[in-house]
Design a binder for these strands. Structure first.
Lengths: 107, 107
DNA sequence: TTGACTTATTCCGATATAGGAATATATAAC
DNA sequence: GTTATATATTCCTATATCGGAATAAGTCAA
């Protein structure tokens, strides 16, 4: 079986670096496809395809404006990932404590 | 070009649901491969392969104990993802505020 | 309508999977 | 040594990608 579809969930969608760049670029304000392509130095079809994936999993919103389509990051779609990784925070914290106390020469 | 290698970075490694389950299972304490396979109802070779990926990107640590190999989640490897998604927290917060104030009938 | 502009879609090729089965390797027990 | 146990690796197949090029589709202007 191949890897799960990127359209299936946000974890897969953000596994692609260019899609992360797009999400960063669209976080603060909506942008047209061409502007994204220019800013990130990608081909227009490539941008449209990545946006399609992000749209499918709900990580961006789209709005038509004349002949342009304006996209913007839907940050709420990233909360699930943030919360999942947050489950491990206690562990990396305690590990840091161990390292720290060791460096300080304490048991 | 295909998707980036799963061994290249944690984002790709956690895109696979079974690997996320493994990380959860190994968060609190180290476990042997067979125990993981039993608990998550996976075949042993499948578990070994997933652990190999997680080990390559530094998301687990391994330790030999007789004929067993004990693995444990290295939570620190997940901090990068947590921090990246955290960049968007201000946006989902402000969106929640908008929704909330709208629901309360305020402008 | 015709043409310009913007975005979406299709077709293609190359490749990195993930699972299953079988096998190899390593360690312990007898 | 031989056997049993635990884990890693190899080989195979099916499939989901990603990028590039070309094209289609939607929208506006004259």
């Amino acid at each position: 079986m191949p890897r799960a579809s990127t359209t299936s969930d946000p974890f897969n969608a953000v596994a692609e670096p260019r899609r992360r760049h797009i999400l960063e670029f669209l976080a603060a304000e909506e942008r047209a496809v061409g502007d994204i392509a220019d800013a990130l130095e990608l081909n227009q079809p490539s941008v449209s395809k990545h946006l399609g994936v992000l749209l499918d999993v709900g990580l961006v919103n789209a709005r038509r404006d004349g002949r342009r389509t304006l996209y913007r990051t839907n940050a709420d779609g990233l909360r699930g990932i943030h919360e999942w990784t947050g489950l491990f925070e206690q562990y990396w914290r305690s590990q840091l404590r161990r390292i720290k106390s060791h460096a300080e020469g304490r048991k």
